[in-house]
């Protein structure tokens, strides 16, 4: 709620300025846009919970899935956890179809996760790799960086398929 109201304020301020008689000063506008951007960037990232939309970063055929259950944790899933998801968007002719219920491993999460040495790691987006019930990946390729913590979670196959390991 607070986030919404703040963004509204910014929008109102901008429209007011425009109404005040065209300043058309690039500096003013750019500064406002940067503040808006920084505000968006500082949004608080949270757990992957029911109804979270995740990108699918393998060639299983699904493009976007929605989390319907986190298999571990009270608040939700984090980086490296397994979730149950329903396929919302899928490519035609893929291994999985739209509406199917699948298992997935969270390989990228925007919420930071502590590492074993005490430092933290976070990613750009929320992404998932689809797996079967035994934990073997459905697709044959994995795109983008994945964390090395997956080794601890016994997903060595995903690690070996990945392009980059962070």
């Amino acid at each position: 709620m607070a986030a919404n109201s703040a963004s509204n304020c910014i929008l109102v301020g901008r429209s007011l300025l425009r109404g005040l008689g065209n300043f058309s000063s690039g500096i003013l506008r750019s500064s406002q846009e940067t503040t808006c951007n920084s505000f968006l960037a500082q949004q608080i990232r949270t757990f992957i919970q029911m109804r979270s939309n995740l990108k699918v970063v393998d060639n299983s055929g699904a493009k976007r899935v929605m989390c319907i259950q986190a298999l571990k944790g009270k608040k939700g899933a984090r980086l490296g956890d397994t979730i149950i998801a329903s396929v919302k968007e899928a490519q035609p002719g893929g291994k999985v179809k739209k509406g199917q219920v699948v298992y997935g491993v969270v390989v990228r999460a925007a919420m930071q996760r502590g590492r074993c040495d005490g430092s933290e790691v976070k990613f750009d987006d929320n992404a998932v790799v689809l797996v079967n019930k035994q934990g073997e990946p459905i697709g044959t390729r994995v795109f983008g960086p994945v964390p090395h913590e997956l080794r601890k979670k016994k997903h060595v196959k995903i690690l070996s398929l990945a392009q980059h390991i962070a």
């Binding site: 990228r108 930071q112 040495d117 005490g118 430092s119 933290e120 790691v121 976070k122 990613f123 750009d124 987006d125 983008g144 960086p145 964390p147 392009q163 980059h164 962070a166």
Partner: peptide, 13 residues
């Protein structure tokens, strides 16, 4: 030093 700070991994790794 080890155990300090945070690291951000962009999508281009």
């Amino acid at each position: 030093y080890p155990g300090h700070g945070i690291q951000f991994v962009r999508n281009d790794a």
